[in-house]
């Protein structure tokens, strides 16, 4: 038995999984090798942690908490349909409408305003009639004054 073999088998030795013959070989090596003995002691302490952690005490308020959580979740369970409906239906619909409105208004703003040629010429003809100022008042008469 050498140190390398011991390192491979140590956890099984500590857990009592090895057959008697192999266990005796390991024990013999541990008595001879102080390095391996130190590692074995360290490993034993680390594995012991699970034993220390096993809970033996019972939380006296555990049942009360379970009951409170159960009642809480039942009231939440009633409103869950509304929540799902709100999240899965109303929210997407609302954001889709918002998006459509945004795109539509963007297109509308981006479009050039069409000029109504007919109505504007009509307007010009009606309101601004041709006025020949030279005929009304000639430059000579204007300067004479």
């Amino acid at each position: 038995m050498n140190c390398k073999t011991l390192h491979k088998e140590l956890i099984f030795f500590l857990e009592g999984d090895l057959p008697l013959e192999k266990r005796e070989q390991l024990e013999a090596h541990l008595n001879e090798c102080p390095d391996c003995a130190a590692f074995a002691a360290d490993m034993k302490k680390t594995l012991q942690v699970t034993e220390d952690e096993k809970s033996t005490e019972v939380n006296p308020f555990f049942y009360t908490r379970v009951k409170a959580k159960l009642e809480n979740s039942e009231t939440q369970h009633i409103g869950i349909f509304e929540k799902v409906f709100l999240r899965k239906v109303l929210q997407p619909v609302f954001f889709s409408i918002l998006l459509i409105i945004g795109v539509y208004s963007g297109i509308k703003i981006g479009q050039p305003t069409p000029v109504n040629v007919f109505s504007s010429t009509q307007f010009d003809q009606e309101t601004v009639p041709y006025l020949n100022e030279m005929e009304t008042e000639s430059i000579e008469t204007f300067l004479m004054e």
């Binding site: 390192h7 491979k8 140590l10 956890i11 099984f12 857990e15 999984d17 590692f39 360290d42 490993m43 680390t46």
Partner: peptide, 13 residues
Amino acid sequence: AKKNLQKKLYRCY
């Protein structure tokens, strides 16, 4: 599982 644990613990040691 035990082999993997042993490897990790030995590396740490």
